[in-house]
Amino acid sequence: MGNKEKGKQSRRKFLQNIGVAGVGAISAPAILFTACSSSSDKKTKVLTPDNKLIEIDSENGLAIDTTDKSYLNKIGREGIPGKKFVMVIDLGKCRNERKCMKACQSEHQLKPEQHHLNVLEMENPSSGQTYFMPKLCQHCDNPPCVTVCPVDATFKRQDGIVLVDNERCIGCRFCIAACPYSARTFNWTEPRDSEEYKDITYNMELNVPQKKGTVTKCAFSADRIREGKLPYCNSACPNGVYYFGDANEDLVTNGTTKETVRLSKLLKQNSAYTLMPELGTQPSVYYLPARENS
């Protein structure tokens, strides 16, 4: 989103010298507490650990200082206060385009067989109709994977996101065994393009660079939502399948149309469900059922 700064428009050349009242008031959309990226150059304002606003170069569009590891680790473990992130997936709209999978794999340095997000072909047992179901980490509120981790390598944050710290992970794979959604994947060998990534500071929220012998999984694009942007998969979807937002605001935004709707209404009107609620995992990902002949 173009987070235009105040006064930017006043520099614009009007075709005729006429003032338009009100223009130049605020038009900045969501900004979480860190970033305020300007649209016109490659500088980005960031909040440093000691709460100073500095400008850094952000050629790759990242809006936080990606070189300060202790800061990245700190914000990665703490999460964003006052938020509770949720995703809604409208199965009726999924056409198996797999742009979400591609975007996810390219952002997270994953090999083709590694999936943080996997679009599965499912069959409705009663009608025999097939439908496509994007399946990702459910960011459970009672996460069985976190329960069994022996070293705090996977953890839940105050904003509900379950992350993996691949510098802590010992590779025991207990979390993989414990996850009923098979949402986790492992770096059995050297990760994809590891040479290329080897000098990059580890960003826990993006979980890049990936490390051999550690577990990786969907992070709800924690690095992106910190910048007020929707997750990678959501923005990549051409069919409007994904909604993402903050349950505390009761608002979710569609990744394709950018339409913002009330979460509670969306779930109620479409008889939303969660995956395997009987297991008591309390997922943060909701599914809107595929409709017949849609």
């Binding site: 989103m1 614009r12 050349k13 009007f14 990549a236 051409p238 149309t257 950018k258």
Partner: peptide
């Protein structure tokens, strides 16, 4: 448009494009 298109506008447009249009 009553505003002259310039680089600034194009850049803000590009950001919106990358976010909302590029997927299709």
């Amino acid at each position: 448009s009553i505003i002259m298109f310039d680089e600034e506008l194009e850049l803000s447009g590009q950001i919106i494009y990358d976010n909302s249009c590029k997927s299709c």
